[in-house]
Structures are given as C-alpha cells and as structure tokens.
C-alpha cells in the first residue's frame, strides 16, 4: 500500500506504524458521569467496518507525523490522507 502523505508525497506503508480507528482521537472526559462506560467503549470496542475506515497511521520511519488515512478495508484503496493534528483541531481539540 502507498500512503500519499500530505507533506511528503507518496510513501510506502511499511514506513508507518498502524494504531487503529481514528475515533481514538476523541478521548472521553474522565470527569463525565458515565466516564467508565465511555472509557470501556473507547479502549476496547470498535466499529470494525467492512468498507470505508478512518484510521491513525504514524510515520515512524519518516517525519513522525500522525495521519488520518481513509482506507477501504475490503479493497485497501486509500481515498484520503490528512494530518491528524488538523483533524483533531477541526473537532475542537486544542492540540
């Protein structure tokens, strides 16, 4: 698989480390009433879709950026690559 890095251009997926579902960006608030349920779902449960999947990849052998890659889990086709920091900020995170 080739990941089209927004800054570095097309790079071999072997340069990256895979973390998992991009929903891992949305860490629950530990002070919420149902924080325990939220953290259980955050830490362990996954949508695991067959089809389009937004996921976190880390460019360990490159510029060490975190990316949000939109990839089809049935065909391995990658349709979108974003810098994870931009995605997190767009969702209201401060960093």
């Amino acid at each position: 698989m080739i990941i089209n890095h927004p800054l570095l251009g097309p790079r071999d997926a072997a340069e990256f480390v895979y973390l998992g579902d991009a929903s891992l960006i949305d860490r629950p608030d530990w002070q919420d009433e149902d924080a325990m349920d939220q953290f259980h779902a955050y830490g362990y449960l996954r949508d695991n879709p067959a089809g389009e999947h937004k996921e976190l990849w880390y460019h360990e052998q490159g510029d060490r950026s975190w990316l949000v890659v939109t990839r089809n889990t049935l065909t391995h086709e990658i349709t979108n690559v974003e810098i994870a920091r931009d995605v997190a900020r767009a969702r209201g995170r401060d960093k």
């Binding site: 698989m1 071999d12 997926a13 072997a14 895979y18 998992g20 579902d21 695991n48 067959a50 999947h53 996921e55 990839r71 889990t73 049935l74 065909t75 391995h76």
Partner: peptide, 13 residues
C-alpha cells in the same frame, strides 16, 4: 499485516 482489513490477501512487506 497489522491494519484493519476484510480482504483475504496481505501485502509484500
């Protein structure tokens, strides 16, 4: 291989 997939094939690395 280390990434989510339902395809019954992997990659070369």
């Amino acid at each position: 291989d280390g990434y989510n997939t339902y395809a019954q094939r992997g990659n070369l690395p």
